[in-house]
Simulated scan of single mutants.
Amino acid sequence: MDRFQSMQVFVTVADTEGFASAARKLYMSPPAVTRTISALEDHLGVMLFHRTTRQVKLTDAGLRYLEDCRRILADLVEAEESVAGAHRVPRGKLSVTASSRFGHLHIAPLLFDFLERYPEMSVQTLFVDRVVDLIDEGLDVAVRIGELPDSSLTAIRVGSVRRVICAAPDYLDMRGVPQTPQDIQGHDIVQFSSLASKAEWRFKGVEGEIIVPFSTRFTVNTPDVAIAAAVAGRGLTMVLSYMIVPELMSGKLRIVLADYENPPLPVHVVYQEGRKAAAKVRAFVDFAVERLRTLAYLNSALD
């Protein structure tokens, strides 16, 4: 039995949740896939899958074995790439994750230039508003905003972003520019729930934190809606500074109460393996770090 091939078949069945689908992906016949899994289970002395006529699910033993197989197969690919010189020539598929709006506005343009520089590379993105586990989801690089937990991942800081309050100039002309945090209570508020789950905003004061409650008729869970509402003159909203770069540059929004902002949030490029990372990862990390560090909005220079 070819142990590595068996592992590849096992991982593919687990990923596709089916023998027939795995067979199509591997260009094998379904009976061959079934025989490979059965032989692997006989060799290990455990059942790796619960099989029914409708679905194939991993057993507890299968779940544990899957993690080990991913690691072993990744090590094998790494060893082969190293021998073949992949640590010197960037090539292959790279997977990158970031939050949705940051990815759309700021990482996608960077990736276009990266692909132009490295024609043997391809890129797959996962832009979602959740923390993605690079190891569990098999991704190469993440751009993360906020304090990082301790982990085995390598993180390079590229700047920071601010939590800012903004509004449309026409709205501010009509309702007045708030001069102190307490002034927001006399304004319409568009609450972006990801930054403020309660109807209150927190500010930095001379003597410590200032918490100002407010009432709102409009609470949203995406920055796009909060920003669109602010541009339409519906009131003040709190977002992260990188989210409104186009609107600030075009004059559609203005930042207020900048003197009362809380400390900025760090932005890091995060990846696995450190110096042992494959050439494709190191090439992108170097490219992204250099580019992101030149951007004013990641260095608190955006007003």
Rank of each mutant, 00 (worst) to 15 (best):
V13A: 10
Q5C: 07
S122W: 09
K204G: 09
S193I: 12
L40G: 05
A278W: 09
L253E: 14
P213C: 03
F112P: 04
E78D: 14
I189W: 01
A232S: 05
G159I: 07
I184C: 01
A288P: 00
D136A: 15
P30T: 12
Y297F: 15
V231I: 13
R144D: 14
P149L: 08
D183Y: 00
E41C: 03
L58A: 06
G205K: 00
L40F: 03
L172G: 00
M47F: 10
G146C: 10
R282C: 03
I145W: 05
V256C: 00
A232K: 07
R64F: 06
A196M: 06
E137I: 01
P90D: 13
G62E: 03
I189P: 00
V128Q: 07
E209G: 08
S95D: 05
P31R: 01
G103V: 01
K25C: 05
G138L: 06
A20V: 12
A232M: 05
Y242I: 14
I165C: 00
Y271K: 06
V123H: 02
L94T: 01
S38D: 15
R254F: 08
K252G: 11
A296E: 15
F4A: 08
S122V: 08
G18W: 07
D303M: 13
D183S: 01
I107A: 09
A168G: 12
G103I: 00
D75H: 04
A232P: 02
R163I: 08
S38R: 07
R101A: 11
M174D: 13
R71N: 05
L58I: 05
R157Y: 08
C166W: 06
I244Q: 10
S160R: 14
G146K: 07
V269S: 07
Q8A: 04
V245Q: 14
V164Q: 06
L94Y: 05
P223I: 00
E81S: 02
F4V: 11
Y171C: 09
A226T: 07
E120L: 12
S300M: 13
D113F: 05
A288C: 01
V13R: 08
R144Q: 15
G62I: 04
D183N: 00
V161K: 11
M249S: 12
K93I: 08
I145E: 12
R144V: 15
M243R: 15
A168P: 07
A296G: 13
R175M: 13
A168F: 12
E67N: 02
A84W: 02
E78S: 13
Y118K: 06
A84Q: 03
I107N: 03
E207W: 10
H43V: 07
M7G: 08
K252S: 15
R24L: 10
R24T: 10
I210S: 02
I165K: 00
M121Y: 04
D170T: 09
S29G: 10
L115E: 07
D133C: 09
R3I: 06
D224M: 12
F203S: 01
E17L: 11
L94G: 04
F49A: 08
P31A: 02
A142P: 11
A74S: 09
D224R: 12
S29D: 12
F214C: 01
Q124H: 07
S152I: 14
D140C: 03
V46F: 11
E80F: 01
V33K: 11
F19H: 08
A296Y: 15
H106N: 09
